[in-house]
Simulated scan of single mutants.
Amino acid sequence: MDPGTPQQEWDRLDRARRALARRHGEKLLAEVRGGGNLRARRDASSLLAFAIALLVHGATMALAFGGIWWLVRGWGGAGMVPGVILLAIAWFLRPRVVQLPEEGPILRRSDAPELFALVDEVAQVVGTRGVDLITADAELNASVTTCGVRGRRLLVLGLPLWEILTPQQRIALLGHELAHYSNGDTRHGLVVKTAYRSLTTWRYVLLPVRNPSFVEMVGNLLCIAPNLLVLGLLTLLEHLTLRATQRAEYLADREAARAASTEAAVGLMDWLLVSDSAVVALQREANQAALAGPRGSRTANAGAEELWERLRAHMASIPEYEYERQRRVGSRRGHSVDTTHPPTHLRSSCLLVGEPAPAAVVMDAGRERRIAAELAAARVNVAQRIVREGFNGYGSAQ
């Protein structure tokens, strides 16, 4: 039933994350199935996480101000050296905002008015505003983020996932992603998110060097205390935000059902259960093109649209017992696979608790054709990249 059980070795932080995910996940599941109120709220854990994030950013600012002070104090002499070092460290550890992706087309409202209108309609249903930019990539995934110093909202549509969904399931996908803006997920907030990235960077810098020389061994010893401090802060931040993060997924699923219908949201979960099959199909397409050599590249240019048709046909051929097998695999592995998302089969079962929701947004055939026309160039672009460069984009809706 489960030949692909993960056997990877986890470090201390990963073990702590998975233990917390299991504990919080089981409590949340009981709340959801019991009809509890999951609405995101600012509790003591959220406030403490925000305070820790401010402390992390404050430490970076202290390094920057210390560097400036040393530069001014030792201007023209050796005292400038500590200042330059501190400023360099502060710059390396600075909070980083998400930048626009370098690959893939960036769509603005003038490029895809019908798609943006659909996003706006779904956003209104889930209680937020639409996005400023949309991009398409080659991942079996979808996500939203805030990018740049201006805080523009970006929707990333993974076309391998988008193309296998029905029109209503696409609305459910949009509803789930946009709900992350409205459900108050602490870890998605700018202050906590950038602090989390900074701590992850610090931990990477402070990791001990393997097979060290004598000098590196001294450096490893000096980094023990800072490394433990950073590890402790990361674990604490995980503990304070993980419950809110998993709660946000259940809330986003509910909003997806409200926007597109319970049936469509459950259908989206079913596709995520068998997403491994889509990965295999796209890897096969890339491998066949690579074996064909130059002729395969010409085929990629001429028949990129056919790739999506073959992918849809492959996914439609998956028998029902494979869905059931994946549900049993998820039940066997429990909450230990993904620290931020509840298991997919549990998300699906929780959507079926209570009365099914009707669709608030309906995709008619005319709108579907217009959106397909707006994404035509992106579909060709992404299909060519998959065939030419190979496929390893793998993930689930987040």
Rank of each mutant, 00 (worst) to 15 (best):
T5Y: 09
E9I: 04
R18T: 09
A21R: 07
R22E: 10
R23C: 00
A30L: 11
V32C: 01
G34N: 08
G35M: 08
L38F: 11
S45R: 13
S46Q: 14
I68K: 02
L71H: 04
R73K: 07
W75A: 15
G77Y: 05
V81H: 12
G83Y: 00
V84K: 11
L86F: 06
A88Q: 10
W91L: 12
L93W: 03
R94N: 09
R94P: 04
V97S: 02
V98L: 05
E103M: 11
G104W: 00
G104S: 02
E114P: 15
L115A: 11
V119Q: 07
Q124R: 15
V125F: 04
V126T: 10
V131Y: 11
I134W: 04
A138P: 00
C147V: 12
G151Y: 15
L154W: 05
P160N: 11
A172R: 12
L174E: 01
L174T: 08
A179C: 15
N183T: 15
L190P: 12
L190R: 14
V191L: 12
V192R: 05
R197V: 08
S198Y: 08
T200A: 15
R203C: 01
V218F: 02
A225K: 13
L229Y: 01
V230G: 00
L233H: 00
L242C: 06
A244H: 13
A244R: 15
E249S: 09
L251W: 07
A259T: 03
S261D: 02
A264S: 09
L268E: 03
M269K: 02
D270E: 10
W271Q: 15
V274N: 04
D276H: 09
L282P: 08
L282C: 10
R284W: 11
E285D: 07
E285P: 06
N287H: 02
A289P: 13
L291W: 07
P294E: 15
P294M: 08
N301F: 01
A304I: 02
L307H: 00
T340C: 12
H345E: 09
R347K: 07
L351F: 14
E355W: 10
P356N: 12
A357S: 06
V362L: 07
V362W: 07
A372E: 05
A376W: 08
R379Q: 04
Q384F: 07
V387M: 05
G395N: 07
Q398R: 14
